[in-house]
Design a protein around this nucleic acid. Structure first.
Lengths: 328, 328
DNA sequence: CTGAAAGCGCTAACAC
DNA sequence: GTGTTAGCGCTTTCAG
C-alpha cells in the first residue's frame, strides 16, 4: 500500500514537511508559487491525508458513534439517515453499530467507540440495559452522549425523545372526535416503558373525554401476534382500532384484509408511526407522526450544542402531529 | 479528555511502555505477576487502546467502508445489517456512507474512506456514475473493492449481484404455470440496466413459453407512479400483474385496494422482492426472492477472500428462489 | 516565507 | 523478563 505522504511530497519537491502541510491547508505564510507546486503534485500523486495521524496528533476525530438496536426499522432508519446527512455535511463521519438489543454487544460497541476516540455518541439503549455508568464515563471524558428514543431514566443524561404519552393522547382524541364508541387498542411489549406510557395516556384520554366509549386493550409484541390478536379482537366488532406502532399496524391490517373488512366503512384505524407504513395502504391510515427524521435533526443539534460547550443537560421531546389519511 | 495511555500506566507502575504493551496483549515474555499488576491497573484506569495510534503504527485499520445510495431501503438495509454483523463478529468496524445517488457525494465518500485508510470497501454505485477509475485506484493500493447490486460493467471489478434476468424469468414461468393469459408488467426506471435486463427476460419468457398470453408493459419510476399506472392498467382487466420491485409492488397494491379488487380472485400479483413487502399483505404476495441478507453474506466472504490474498476477480450472483404466497 | 524538532500513542526490532 | 529506540504521518510551536 504505497500511500502518498507529506514526507514523500516534501522529498520530491525539496521542501520541508511543514511547508507541504501548510501549503495544502492554504496557510497565509506560504507563497503562491510554492502552494501551486505543492497542490499540483499532491493532486497527481493522489494525496489523501491520513485521518489516523491527524486524529492522533490533534485528538479530534471528527467521528460520531451511533448505537442502535437495529438499523432495519423504519424509525431508526429515518433517524440514522438524518444524522448521517447532517454529520457528513459538517465533515463528521458516523460509525453505526447495531446492538441487537443485547447489552453485552452494546458494551462492546461502546468499547469500539472509545477505541476510535469518537467525538460524540448517539445511543438508543436496549430495554435490558440497566447499568448506564459506562455511558456516563464518556461524559466525564468530555465526550457528549445523546440518548435517543429509548433513554435511561437518569437526570444526568441528555435525551431526545418522541412524545410517548402525548401521541397516544392525540390518537385518542381523534378517535373521540370521530365518535368512535367501541375502541380496540393494540399495544407492544407490556414491559417497555413506552408501552406503559402510551397505554396509560390512551386509556385516560378515552375515559375522560368519552365516558360512554368502550375500550378493549390487548398486547402484541410482534407483527404476527398483532395479526392473530386482531382476529380475536374483531369478533367483538370494534368500530376502531388503535395501533401503538408500525409493527402492530401491519399485523392489524393483515388481519383486516384477511377478514375482508373495508376501511373506514367497517371500522376505523389509527396508528402511531414514523410515516412510511400508513402510506402503504389505500386508504392511507391516519396516524400520529413520531418522526425519526425530526428526532435525528434534534439529536444532531443537541450534539452540536454540547460540542459548542453547553453543559446544560438537555431533555427534549419532539412534538407529534396528526396526519390524516382516510382510515377514520 | 484525560485518556489513559500506556505511558501513564508505565509511569505509575515504574515499568517501561513496552512492558505494559506486552503485558496487555498477554505476551509470553512477561511474568505472570507483572501481567496481573498491569491488567489490574489498566482496568481500574479504564484503559482503552487508541485505535488511531494502532492504525497509524500497523497500517491495518480493521475498518471497512460501505457506500450505498440510501440506507432507507429494504434491500440495502438487509445488506448492511448482514455485513455489519459479519464485520463486527470478526473485529471489523463499518463506516456506512450514503451517496443519495449523487456521484459527487459518492466521490466525497470515497475520499473519506481513503482518509480513514479503510481495509476494504463495499460499494453500490449510483446509476450516474460513469467514471470508476477512483474505485480502481483503491484496488491498485491493495484495498479490495467489492461492488454490490449496482455494479459497473467492467471486468476488472469484483461483483456480487442478485440474479437480474433470472428472477424475472422465474416470475414469468410462475405466471405461465398458473395459466395467466393477460399479464401486465410494471417496471422501474427504463434507463437502468436492471430494468432492461428484467424486462427483456420477462418478455422473452412469456412469449416463448406461452405464445397465447397477452403482455402489457409499463414503467413506473416511483411508488406513486406505480399506483397511477396501475389504475390505468386495470382498465384492461389483466389477470395478473408482475412487479419488478418492492417500490412498484406497493404502488400496485394501493391501486388494487383503491379499486376494491380482491387477490387472487380478481387478479394475481407476483413481484421480485427482498421479502419484507410481500408479507405486508393478506394474502401474502408470491415473490421471487432477491435477498439483501444473502447478498451481504456473499459480499463479506468475497471481501475476506480478497483479504486472504485471492487475486481472482470474482463475479458472483446469488440464486433467486420463489416464495409462494397466496396471490396467484 | 520556510525549516527543524517535538510529540500524539502505539508496536516491534533489538539490546541486555 | 524488561528496557531502549525508532518510527507510523501529521500538526505546531519556535527559530531563522
Amino acid at each position: 500500500m504505497n500511500n502518498t505522504t507529506l514526507k514523500k511530497i516534501s522529498e520530491i519537491l525539496g521542501l520541508s514537511i511543514s511547508t507541504i502541510s501548510r501549503a495544502l491547508k492554504d496557510h497565509p505564510d506560504i507563497s503562491a508559487k510554492t502552494k501551486q507546486r505543492v497542490v499540483e503534485l499532491a493532486t497527481t500523486l493522489d494525496y489523501e491525508p491520513n485521518a489516523n495521524a491527524i486524529n492522533l496528533r490533534t485528538s479530534n476525530s471528527k467521528l460520531f458513534g451511533l448505537i442502535v438496536p437495529s438499523i432495519s426499522n423504519w424509525f431508526y432508519n429515518a433517524f440514522i439517515a438524518s444524522v448521517e446527512e447532517d454529520s457528513r455535511r459538517n465533515g463528521y463521519s458516523l460509525m453505526i453499530l447495531q446492538s441487537g438489543d443485547d447489552p453485552s454487544i452494546e458494551i462492546n460497541n461502546l468499547k469500539l467507540c472509545r477505541q476510535n476516540r469518537i467525538t460524540g455518541l448517539f445511543v438508543c439503549i436496549s430495554p435490558e440495559t440497566t447499568n448506564i455508568e459506562p455511558f456516563l464515563k464518556l461524559k466525564e471524558m468530555d465526550i457528549p452522549v445523546i440518548f435517543f428514543d429509548k433513554v435511561p431514566d437518569d437526570a444526568r443524561c441528555n435525551k431526545v425523545c418522541v412524545a410517548d404519552a402525548l401521541s397516544a393522547t392525540m390518537a385518542a382524541n381523534e378517535l373521540i372526535s370521530k365518535k368512535k364508541k367501541k375502541i380496540a387498542g393494540l399495544f407492544g411489549n407490556p414491559h417497555l416503558l413506552i408501552t406503559q406510557k402510551r397505554l396509560e395516556a390512551f386509556r385516560k384520554t378515552i375515559h375522560e373525554k368519552s365516558g360512554a366509549a368502550q375500550l378493549i386493550i390487548d398486547y402484541a409484541p410482534s407483527t404476527e401476534d398483532a395479526e392473530s390478536k386482531t382476529i380475536e379482537l374483531l369478533k367483538e366488532k370494534p368500530d376502531a382500532i388503535f395501533c401503538m406502532s408500525d409493527e402492530i399496524l401491519i399485523g392489524v391490517m393483515k388481519a383486516i384484509q384477511r377478514k375482508g373488512l373495508s376501511i373506514p366503512k367497517d371500522l376505523g384505524v389509527i396508528t402511531i408511526s414514523n410515516g412510511a407504513a400508513p402510506k402503504l395502504y389505500f386508504p392511507e391510515i391516519t396516524y400520529v407522526e413520531t418522526s425519526g427524521h425530526k428526532l435525528g435533526k434534534m439529536a444532531y443539534s443537541s450534539m452540536m450544542a454540547c460540542l459548542g460547550g453547553s453543559t446544560f443537560i438537555q431533555d427534549l421531546t419532539i412534538e407529534s402531529i396528526l396526519v390524516e389519511g382516510g382510515s377514520l
